[in-house]
C-alpha cells in the first residue's frame, strides 16, 4: 500500500494508460458492435454464424490472441487494443441483438406506419430503447477489458500491468499488490458508474 502513496506520479501515469486502453477499446468495440448487431439482427442464420465466430474468439486465451496479432500490429498498444476490441464484440453484439429483439413489434410497426425512415427509426426509437441493455454490455466489456489490459504491459502497451510484471521480475511484492489493488479498484469504479447510468436510463421504461 505504501508504494501507492510514495509513488503517486507513477501510479497515476500507469492508471491513466490503463484507462485509455480500456475505454479506448470499449468505445471502438461499441462503434463496431452497434452496426454489426443491427445488421445481423433478424437474420437467423447470419446471427448464429457471427455469434459463433465471436464466441470462439472469446475463448482464445488473451496472451495467445495478442501473440497471434503481434505480426499484424507490432509490439505496441495497437495489438492490445485490437485484442480487447475482439473480446468485447461477443458481449456487445449479443446485447445489441437482445435489445433489438426485446422491442415490442407494435412499437416498430407504429414507427414505420407513422412515416419514419429506417434511419429515424434507428436513432429515435431503437437506439434509445436498447441503450440500457447496451450499457449493461458495455459495463461487462469494460471490466473484461480492464482485466485483460493488464497483460498488455508485456506488449509495450503500458498500464498497471507494468507494476505487476516488474514486481514479479524484481520480487517486489509491494509493487504487485499496489498494481492489483489499483486495477481492481478501477474495475469496480467502471462497473459502478455504468451500473448507475444503466439504472437511470432504464427508469421511464418500467
Amino acid at each position: 500500500m505504501s508504494y501507492i502513496f510514495n509513488n503517486p506520479d507513477i501510479i497515476l501515469k500507469l492508471l491513466w494508460e490503463h484507462i485509455v486502453l480500456a475505454i479506448g477499446a470499449l468505445l471502438i468495440a461499441t462503434v463496431i458492435a452497434i452496426p454489426l448487431g443491427y445488421y445481423i439482427h433478424g437474420k437467423q442464420k447470419l446471427t448464429t454464424v457471427v455469434l459463433g465466430i465471436l464466441g470462439t474468439l472469446y475463448t482464445i486465451p488473451s496472451l495467445v490472441l495478442m501473440i497471434l496479432l503481434l505480426p499484424l500490429f507490432g509490439l505496441n498498444a495497437t495489438t492490445v487494443v485490437v485484442a480487447l476490441v475482439i473480446y468485447c464484440q461477443i458481449i456487445l453484439v449479443r446485447n445489441v441483438i437482445a435489445g433489438l429483439d426485446a422491442i415490442e413489434p407494435g412499437i416498430m410497426e407504429a414507427a414505420q406506419g407513422m412515416g419514419m425512415t429506417r434511419a429515424q427509426q434507428f436513432t429515435q426509437i431503437q437506439l434509445p430503447l436498447i441503450l440500457p441493455v447496451l450499457i449493461a454490455g458495455m459495463r461487462l466489456s469494460v471490466v473484461v477489458a480492464t482485466a485483460i489490459a493488464t497483460v498488455g504491459a508485456m506488449f509495450g502497451a503500458g498500464g498497471l500491468g507494468t507494476l505487476l510484471f516488474n514486481g514479479i521480475s524484481q520480487g517486489r511484492f509491494d509493487k504487485i499488490i499496489s498494481g492489483s489493488l489499483t486495477v481492481s479498484l478501477l474495475a469496480i469504479v467502471f462497473n459502478l458508474s455504468l451500473q448507475y447510468l444503466e439504472k437511470r436510463l432504464g427508469k421511464p421504461l418500467s
Binding site: 407494435g106 412499437i107 410497426e109 407504429a110 406506419g113 412515416g115 421511464p204 421504461l205
Partner: peptide, 14 residues
Amino acid sequence: KIGYVIQQTGLFPH
C-alpha cells in the same frame, strides 16, 4: 399524411 393507431398502442416507452 395518414394517422395510425394500433392495438398495443405502439406508444414509444422512452
